[in-house]
Write a protein that binds this DNA or RNA. Structure first.
Lengths: 212, 212
DNA sequence: CTAACGTTTGTCCATTCGGTCAAAAATTTG
DNA sequence: CAAATTTTTGACCGAATGGACAAACGTTAG
């Protein structure tokens, strides 16, 4: 009898865990880790607290699961940045995909922002490992484009940071963006406006200069 | 006897309140409002909890005082954006000042970011009032520059958002920036690199196009 | 010196929160 | 169906937390 053998996951377990994670995403992204309570998550998931704790032993387990999943989705657009395509087209697509993620997955963006703001206590290793590796790799790709004269020479790391910052801003600082734009301009059209602006900013800002 | 008359503030009160606010800034910016405890703040301020509560009746009072003060400092650079100067120079200075604030006042930046992330429950009126008014005004200034052909035509609101996002990123996402850049490139030089990059991005990205 | 006022602290309290447990209810399996 | 297993819940617990309070201590003006 091997008590350490991982028991197979039941249908109900699979389903309920999903419900819990969805509810937890809602609560964590709005309140942060410490601000969120198990009771809130349980209520949002439509079950009692002990019942929720039957599926996830600890509050932190829910959070960790959520963040680990998130990171994959989150880095997907950058992974797609491709060496072979046309640089300007690749960058435009990357910016657009990131902006779409801010629009379609704002809760995920805020969950991530919350974690980083608090000093990334739960995902530091991932940042220094997987994330850094990926960024290093893509920075090399971008540097290649610069050397080939396809885009202006500049710091590829800070370019990536700028794309992250500007796109995620529309998810993380959403209430501020809405407040400033007002009810009229802050409506559904704000993402198209943002897309147009960012495209112009980055593509013009990176237009290669002729060698003098 | 007018009990509602505001009693004059003692020397000790003035000093201690300052100590508390400094300690609270440290704790709130690192833990968020709910994550921070009065005990933590009291310890950081070097006094007992009841003593602290003698100067600020409630935890929220400390937070509110902090945020109200912050907002003035925070908007100062934008207020300085001047109609009369050369547009490109004005924008360059604005970006530089904002980046310096991210470097010199990262705790203030994080405090603000935390508040906005949680939906700005305590400062919504300020965002819709004072902040919106200021941004509207400056957006008009920028639009004037565009009409005069001094900078490229684009959306002034999203331009301001982009400057906020990129500069504050270096304070709010500092641990991520450091993790990605690594110990060598993530050192003190990262702000100069960022300044160079952002200057190029925005100034090239906004270079006026000749009318065709 | 002393009365009045300002400051500090130990103690206490109610609530909230993360988490446990045993027992009931539901489901699956043979 | 009945046994075995999984799921659900009410009741409970200890620790943490925001805050109250009165008593002690310190300071200062008359």
């Amino acid at each position: 009898m091997d008590k350490t053998a991982p028991r197979r996951r039941t249908r109900i377990q699979t389903e309920k865990r999903e419900v819990i994670l969805e509810a937890a995403l809602e609560v964590f992204s709005a309140q942060g880790f410490r601000g969120a309570t198990i009771d809130q998550i349980a209520e949002a998931a439509g079950m009692s607290k002990p019942n929720l704790l039957y599926y996830f032993k600890r509050k932190e387990d829910i959070h960790r699961t959520l963040i680990e999943r998130l990171l994959e989705t989150w880095l997907a657009p950058l992974r797609e940045l491709d060496d072979v395509g046309d640089p300007m087209t690749e960058l435009r697509s990357y910016i657009r995909r990131k902006l779409e993620m801010a629009r379609d997955f704002p809760r995920e963006s805020r969950l991530f922002a919350n974690e980083i703001l608090q000093g990334a206590p739960r995902i530091m290793p991932l940042l220094e490992g997987e994330l850094k590796t990926l960024v290093d790799e893509k920075a090399q790709v971008i540097r290649g484009w610069m050397r080939a004269g396809k885009i202006a020479r500049t710091d590829p790391y800070h370019l990536i940071f700028a794309i992250w910052a500007t796109t995620q801003h529309y998810a993380d600082f959403d209430v501020q963006v809405r407040a400033v734009l007002g009810p009229d301009r802050g409506g559904d059209g704000r993402f198209e406006d943002a897309a147009r602006f960012l495209e112009q900013l980055f593509l013009e800002g990176l237009r290669p200069k002729p060698v003098s």
